[in-house]
Amino acid sequence: MAAEDKAAEGGLVFHPLEQFKVHPLFGDGPIHWYTPTNVTLWMAVAVLVIVLLMVVGGRSRAIIPGRVQSVGELIYGFIYKMVEDVAGHDGVKFFPYIMTLFMFIITANYLGLIPMAFATTSHIAVTAVLALAVFFTVTIVGFVKNGTDFLGLFWVTAAPLPLRPILAVIELISYFVRPVSHSIRLGGNVMAGHAVIKVFAGFAAIALISPVSVAAITAIYGLELMVAGIQAYVFTILTCVYLKDALHPHH
């Protein structure tokens, strides 16, 4: 949600996608893989927030927790229970990994909602890497744990025999579509919300419409606060569901 100064140029100027631009933090050179960019900055802020919340907040190890510590413990309990309930008891050893995903996504989502901030999770490159990491982890774990039994996931024994090859094809396609939907669901939701807010902000340049525009921005912002949490939750719980498939393919 960058630059409100665009409106100052007068007239209706829409740059709803401007806010997603990746640019170097220092200077204006080309973007190499190592260049510190706004992506770097906001990911670093996310790391900082996570450290403050999970490490600094709990440093007193109080039996009766303070505010920050109890928030950290709440998140811990929430994700731990989710992993245990969805992925099963043997999924618990993936808990740190899932916790990392959840903490990063929810922190990045909420940081992105700060005006002028850069939403790292609105980029398909970021969400695709997260989703592909989950996809490969799940696939590798599935084959290592179950060997070729993992292919039973695609062979639906509950269905009548003639239908099984067809179902196998469908299952196989849906399995490979998983990372696509997994990543686009998160990136698309975050991007769409931010772009819509920016479009409404563009309308605010017209004095007559501006009250409506401000009200709409407020409403959408409230919606986005929900979406930010829900999408992080959805990404995490889907990861748990995929993990369950890998650990117990015959369900």
Partner: peptide, 19 residues
Amino acid sequence: PNQIFWLAVTMVVIYFVLS
């Protein structure tokens, strides 16, 4: 490449801090 690199760094840092 830039995003993926910094994401990888971030995830590794978060993973180690958390775990």
